[in-house]
Structures are given as C-alpha cells and as structure tokens.
C-alpha cells in the first residue's frame, strides 16, 4: 500500500489548552508509522511557532522547541499566512516553516488523503 499522506491542522494556541501539545504527540505517532505528515499551524495555532517562549514559568513543556524538531523527524511544518496576519505576527518572529496562503493551503489539502484537525 502506498504511504498515506495527511495534513494535521493545529488550530489552538499553546498552554491554555492541551490541544497543541496533544496534537504534537499524535502527529509524532503518525510520522513514526510512516505516514507522510504535513503540519499546518492555523488560526490561534500560529502562536505555537512564536520564538522566545518561556513556559517553564508555568512548569510546562516548551511546545515551540518540540514543533521546531518536526522537520528533523520527517514531518513538514507550515504557517498559515492569513492567520499570522490576523494575529499581528511576522513570519520572522517564528521558527522556520513554509508560509502558506489560502490557495497553497487548499492545494496542500487536495494533495493529502486525510485532514486531521486539532481545534
């Protein structure tokens, strides 16, 4: 069977909800099982990519450091540009990732087998 491709949309900001953290655990599972995984930070999810996070003050695990490891683990990381703009964040303030406009996100979605959302 040909390798499955999925897009995982992370739509929630880090730390207030467990969503971005639990989403990471799920997508690491997908990657380790040979599923081609495209991770898109969208809506509040773009906040996950912001550099200089200090969640140790909350005694929580650093999510931006985890997401920054994704390319090395074989998953591709993307930022949804309109979401960045809505949140007043420049791509320069974020970790390295491909920036997608709506049309590119649409094309990514059509290229995968499933879309899994963490909202």
């Amino acid at each position: 069977m040909e390798a499955k491709k999925v897009a995982v949309l992370i739509r929630s900001a880090p730390y207030g909800m467990a969503t971005a953290g639990e989403g990471f655990r799920a997508l690491i599972g997908l990657v380790s099982m040979g599923i081609q995984t495209h991770v898109v930070l969208v809506d509040d999810g773009v906040m996950v990519a912001l550099k200089n996070q200090s969640p140790e003050v909350l005694d929580m695990n650093n999510l931006v450091d985890l997401y920054a490891q994704l390319p090395g683990l074989g998953a591709k990381l993307y930022l949804h540009h309109p979401s960045l703009a809505d949140h007043g964040i420049s791509p320069d303030a974020c970790i390295e990732a491909e920036v997608l406009d709506d049309e590119k996100l649409r094309r990514l979605i059509s290229s995968v087998d499933h879309v899994i959302t963490f909202n």
Binding site: M1, K4, G29, L30, I35, N119
Partner: peptide, 21 residues
C-alpha cells in the same frame, strides 16, 4: 491502545473526522 493503533486507523480509513474543542 497506543499511537500505533491511532496511526493504523488513519491508514485504514477512507474518510476521517476530527472532533475537538
């Protein structure tokens, strides 16, 4: 079950639905 089962479900499915917050 572990995430291996989750990944297998994703592989086996023709349609996939996510329900969160």
């Amino acid at each position: 079950a572990g995430m291996v089962v989750f990944s297998n479900y994703v592989k086996e499915c023709d349609r996939f639905l996510s329900f969160g917050f």
